[in-house]
């Protein structure tokens, strides 16, 4: 399979703290990769480095075989790698539909028009389709600060997908979302992702979500990857159980409990 994302000996140090240590990761096109790890394990640091938010101390990042090291987040986004955030990054004074319309305009051109209206009929129609696709059409005119957390997360992810990225990085897509909403949210997101044929890498704390949606898991601990493989194998790994998931989580296929 063709590799879409590759990191080579990626390191990040914050003073004496090593947040990422020699990370060698390869993600193939079409894969859905889950990233697990306790708080401070370096998961978000990894995403932040790959998407240009943080500059690695050492190492190399290749996207579609080309180095993106030192590129700005916008350049990386334009190259085809989008992301969502742990805390949904939206425009709080705008409505849900206006957030989507801004994302649509941004996807069309890096140089927005000076005089033609942003809220064109074509963009409104496309935004309506996206609202329906994500099941949030009832919130179209609500301010994003007034909608439930799950809806905010969906808007955040929808905005990331609007530019038709080749790869999508989701940072804890279900954090702050109630247990009942998680599956619905992830089903919606994964359906949209499949339709767009996007490679996905997502950070997640809920092992049930990980098991359900990913084809491969990377387990982080203290800035290192301690396991990489099929979900069943990684979640059954003794080091992962000791250092990441804790003993409370027992792989479902083992005894049906979690």
């Amino acid at each position: 399979m063709t590799t879409i994302l590759e990191t080579r000996s990626l390191n990040k140090e914050f003073g004496a703290v090593i947040a990422a240590k020699d990370l060698d990761v390869q993600v193939a096109k079409g894969e859905v990769v889950g990233v697990i790890g306790s708080n401070g394990a370096g998961k978000t640091t990894f995403i932040n480095m790959v998407t240009g938010y943080l500059k690695p101390t050492r190492g190399e990042i290749l996207f579609n075989g080309k180095s993106i090291l030192g590129h700005s987040p916008r350049a990386i986004t334009r190259a085809g790698m989008a992301r969502s955030f742990q805390v949904a990054q939206l425009f709080p004074e705008m409505s849900v539909i206006d957030n989507l319309i801004v994302a649509l305009a941004a996807a069309e051109s890096p140089r927005p028009s000076f005089l033609s209206p942003l809220r064109s009929d074509a963009r409104i129609a496309r935004a309506e389709e996206i609202l329906v696709e994500f099941g949030i059409e009832n919130y179209r005119h609500s301010k994003v600060t007034a909608v439930p957390q799950g809806v905010r997360k969906l808007v955040d992810i929808a905005m990331a997908l609007i530019g038709n990225p080749q790869m999508l990085l989701l940072d804890e897509p279900t954090s702050g979302v109630s247990m009942d909403e998680k599956t619905g949210l992830m089903d919606t997101v994964m359906n949209a992702v499949r339709q767009h044929g996007v490679t996905v890498l997502f950070v997640e704390h809920d092992m049930d979500v990980v098991e359900r949606y990913v084809s491969r898991v990377l387990a982080f601990y203290s800035g290192e990857i301690i396991a990489d493989g099929k979900p069943a194998a990684v979640l059954a790994d003794e080091r992962v159980r000791d250092l990441v998931t804790g003993h409370r989580h027992t792989h479902k296929k083992g005894n049906g409990a979690s």
Partner: peptide, 17 residues
């Protein structure tokens, strides 16, 4: 409108490319 978006969330604008 996007200048207003910059005021509200510069990070998101950057990640919209």
């Amino acid at each position: 409108v996007i200048c207003e978006a910059v005021r509200e969330n510069e990070v998101r604008v950057e990640y919209l490319g």
